[in-house]
Amino acid sequence: MAQRKGNATESQTIEQMDTPAWQHRHVLDVDCLSRDDIRLVFQTTDAMMEVLSREVRRVPTLRGKTIVTLFYEPSTRTRASFEMAAKNLSADVVSFAASGSSVEKGESFIDTLRTLQALGADAIIIRHKQSGAPYVAARHVSASILNAGDGWHAHPSQSLLDMYTLRRHFPDLQGLRIVMLGDVLHSRVARSNIWGMTTMGAQVVLCCPPTLLPDVFSRSDHGPVTSGYLPEVTIETDVEKALDGADVVMPLRLQTERQEAGLLPSVREYVERYQLTVARLRLLRKHSVVMHPGPMNEGVEISPEVAYGMQSVIEEQVSVGVGIRMALLYLVIGGGR
């Protein structure tokens, strides 16, 4: 169909859609995004990456919009990259950290949200230690909610930037063998990536000690499993078998406090059996890549040689993070409702 110019004013002209329109007011997890939605995020990110390549990395798109980052948990890259993304789009950014605020005086989560809304927030970016907190937020305020990590549950912007990074190295995610290695149980990045990567047609392999596998998967040790709530993945507790012929490996951060909880005999044994080493990397396919959602424990889940080696795309993940978050902010609050 040809582009329309007419009907009242040109300002109503909508570029002809080669992808279906974005329908989501919030970004809570990747599980509610279709393949077309994810492709639209990628396409929008392509345009944002061009803006980031300029000398002046600023466009007026979200002028007059107010974006609040509400972080109840520490973060460096996610928070910094959301704030940079908002500023690159000319939005006003208010950072809100739980410490030093009225939260310490006992203000409830919902009261805090209502206050931010009353102050005029158009979008609220939330990180919270409780899984599901952003969902509660979305039910109580009219602002758009973006989940920047909730408990063990989800981290959609990280998953989208992981997939976008892969798209720059492989023609398509369809058919890729992607291994998530290590602490799957506590990893919200792994959960969001299981959704996103399987939606895009990749084969996801979870490789971890049985104690670090989410309960829903533990009925079977090997082969494809369906959990009832997560999409079908392959479980493989043996690292060598998991990595054999893989295209992508993503070691997940081992949180040392897990050992204290009795989930691991010792960190040394974990390193021995599950660390991504140069020797293990040789099991992967020729053009394979290594990702890490960060922050890394070098020498625990990943050896420094691998983290900074030729196949590592870890820095690239951080640099596309701003582009992905610009795309998400544009898609949720950039246009009409």
Partner: peptide, 23 residues
């Protein structure tokens, strides 16, 4: 050139324009 990021009417549009890469 894609002008989507520079439009003066973004907040009044019924649908968001798809943004293409400027090259």
């Amino acid at each position: 050139l894609d002008i989507g990021l520079y439009r003066d009417d973004l907040s009044t549009l019924p649908l968001k324009p798809v943004i293409h890469r400027t090259k």
